[in-house]
Nucleic acid binder design. Structure first.
Length: 598
RNA sequence: GUCCGCGUAGCUCAGUGGAUAGAGCAGUAGCCUUCUAAGCUAUUGGUCGUAAGUUCGAUUCUUACCGCGGACACCA
């Protein structure tokens, strides 16, 4: 890495010029901004303290030292306290030559025994997936790829919440009002059908509450005493007692949901290495509770409930087991964390879960720590913000959710309409065109969501369709398609690929537009590291956009195939090929496909 | 009430101590007989929520306040 060598040389320069201890030096090396000449910039203000000279003189002295001690350094200029360093052309030419045809440039191979376990998606089986789940899925899936590309083994896991009172509500409503309706007889996707009965339950339940309130009962009391909720609770008890009839109904309706989810996941392009079901894990954790009681870190109260006191940690007391001995959410999560630790021996356990559960994960980590599980530090909650609609949060009961299947369908239709309007369709047959709409529609949606910093809330306006111009997925996809078009034309002209990977006779000056692209390509490996460190696909998304923009400016200003000097033409073709590889890899990290033509 | 997060252009977002705070959308004006115009160029638009502090230097770090969101269940 030339950056590392530059940093080292700079600290060496300062140490030798001003006779101080180089260990204490922190070098701030950054990319030179586009409006100034140079490749890398050092801010020298911090060193004027030791140089006892003006920033300009300090910068010049360091610059002189670098020119005479680092063979890659060509020249420098000083503006105020900024030392802008230019590298020699041969550095950039060699960089291009060595990497332009490496299709896995920037991607490290996964290594090591301890994988990173990433849990994401984790839906409930009582309703279909919505826009919030899409953000979760895209983040989890992309993060997995980013972690892989930065050298980790990764296991992507999904913990499906397939049991509990909410599923019983759908089951009960279907039993009462379903008339034996199935996905087949209704022509409705299974998850949507089950979701429909969840809504039906809620409507009847609300009516019952209203009646009770009208008869003079307090609303809170009414919500607890309504016959429907009592019946749903009864059903849950029957489920826990393995009542065959209830289990059969449960299995049937869950099957419908899974078939529906499979379609949604497939359309979205998401998959998992392993799927866990809460029905099989919800009893885990009770033994850990007992362990905690024995160790004296948990306390059992007279009513039989078990608690941990986290007030010394600045939190509250937390219930770990109900007085009737049944599990709460925390109990299960303790158990599944332990299970996962035993199963994978992971270096990191990542949970992609919305930020409303931050407190829960803080508690989980602390509880495990108090239990003596040193690996609790390996737990990382990727806490992402809500997707908000113009009028506030999505609320399933108020019908303001943006359904995942509907949204993707709309994206495909928008992609088709745009392609038609732009007259792009002549050269595509039906199947090809259909495939292209999917690639572009999904690209637009995924990029729209992933470009936003995960921890921030984001706004989605269903009235305005997701953009296809500007800082968007299709813009980047288009850039890739253009590059492929150039490469195809090069082949047609009989320029074989071996030819344009040898730049030994390239002597021309590198144009600013070419340099700009080269500098972005140069940054790709460190961008992946940064994204992995920050657990943020947005870092990759914004990088891909900037790279595409730089390429488009290059493409606009500079001829490639019509260039008469073969060495120059080949150099530019190499640059195109390299940019295409990196755009494709960056998009792959986001889980976005790139089309060969569009 | 306590705790956590977020306030950057009309709108959606970048910018994890450095130069004149950047993109896209929207608006305006240009560029296709020339490698794909889903592109490129120019231009309009900012007291970086407010106020103090730390620093040679703060949108970035600290504190207080204001605004928005979230959490603090024998729900998940």
């Amino acid at each position: 890495m030339v950056e590392a060598r530059l940093s080292a040389a700079i600290s060496e320069a300062i140490a030798s010029l001003y006779s101080i201890d180089r260990e204490s030096l922190q070098i701030q090396l950054q990319k030179t901004r586009r409006e100034f000449e140079g490749d890398f910039t050092v801010v020298v203000f911090p060193y004027t303290r030791v140089s006892k000279k003006s920033p300009e003189i300090t910068a010049s002295e360091i610059g002189d030292y670098l020119c005479s001690h680092m063979p890659e350094v060509e020249s420098f200029n000083v503006i105020k306290g900024f030392l802008n360093i230019s590298l020699k052309s041969f550095y950039w030419i060699t960089f291009l030559q060595e990497n332009c045809s490496n299709i896995s440039y920037g991607l490290k191979a996964p290594a090591g025994d301890s994988p990173v376990v990433v849990e994401f998606s984790s839906p409930n089986t009582n309703k279909p997936l919505h826009l919030g789940h899409i953000r979760n899925n895209l983040l989890g899936f992309s993060l997995s790829r980013i972690l892989e590309a930065s050298g980790n083994k990764v296991a992507r896991v999904n913990l499906v919440n397939d049991r509990g009172i909410h599923i019983c509500k759908s089951m009960l409503a279907w039993q009462k009002w379903g008339n034996g309706e199935t996905p087949e007889t209704s022509g409705t996707k299974g998850d949507h059908l089950v979701g429909k009965y969840y809504v039906i339950f809620d409507q009847h339940y609300k009516n019952e509450i209203a009646e009770l309130v009208a008869s003079g009962i307090e609303p809170e009391e009414a919500a607890k005493k309504a016959p429907l909720i009592l019946e749903a609770q009864q059903m849950l008890r029957k489920w826990e007692a393995h009542d065959p009839e209830t289990i059969r109904l449960w299995e049937m309706m869950n099957r419908w949901v899974y078939d529906g989810f499979d379609i949604t996941y497939k359309t979205l392009g998401i998959d998992f290495d392993k799927i866990y079901y809460e029905s099989r894990t919800y009893l885990l954790g009770k033994s850990l509770v007992n362990e905690g009681i024995e160790k004296g870190v948990f306390t059992k109260r007279s009513d039989g409930s078990v608690w941990i006191d986290l007030t010394p940690d600045g939190l509250d007391e937390k219930l770990l087991l109900r007085s009737d001995g049944t599990s709460v959410y925390m109990t299960q999560d303790m158990g599944t964390a332990r299970q996962r630790y035993d199963e994978y021996n992971p270096s990191q356990l990542i949970y992609v879960v919305g930020n409303e559960q931050e407190y829960h994960f803080n508690v989980l980590k602390l509880v495990l720590k108090h239990l003596g599980c040193s690996w609790s530090d390996a737990i990382y909650h990727l806490s992402y913000g809500m997707v908000e609609l113009p009028h506030g949060k999505m609320k399933s009961r108020e019908g303001t959710v943006v359904d995942a299947d509907d949204l993707m369908q709309e994206m495909f239709e928008t992609a088709e309409r745009m392609a038609r309007e732009l007259g792009k369709l002549e050269s595509f047959d039906g199947d090809e065109a259909e495939k292209l709409y999917r690639i572009i529609g999904l690209g637009a949606l995924k990029y729209f969501i992933l470009k936003v910093d995960p921890k921030k809330n984001m706004l989605f306006n269903p009235e305005e369709s997701v953009d296809f111009n500007g800082n968007t997925g299709p813009f980047i996809q288009y850039t890739y398609a253009r590059i492929q078009s150039v490469m195809r034309k090069a082949l047609e002209l009989g320029i074989n690929s071996d030819q344009h990977h040898d730049f030994s006779d390239y002597t021309a000056k590198i144009a600013p537009q070419e340099k700009e692209v080269l500098r972005f390509l140069h940054d790709f490996p460190s961008t992946i590291s940064l994204a992995a460190e920050m657990h943020s696909p947005a870092v990759i998304a914004n990088y891909a956009y900037e790279l595409a923009g730089a390429y488009n400016r290059f493409y606009h200003d500079i001829t490639i195939l019509k260039e008469e000097d073969e060495a120059v033409r080949n150099f530019r073709l190499g640059l195109c090929n390299f940019a295409g590889n990196v755009i494709s890899n960056a998009m792959w990290l986001l889980g976005i496909e790139v089309p060969e033509r569009m």
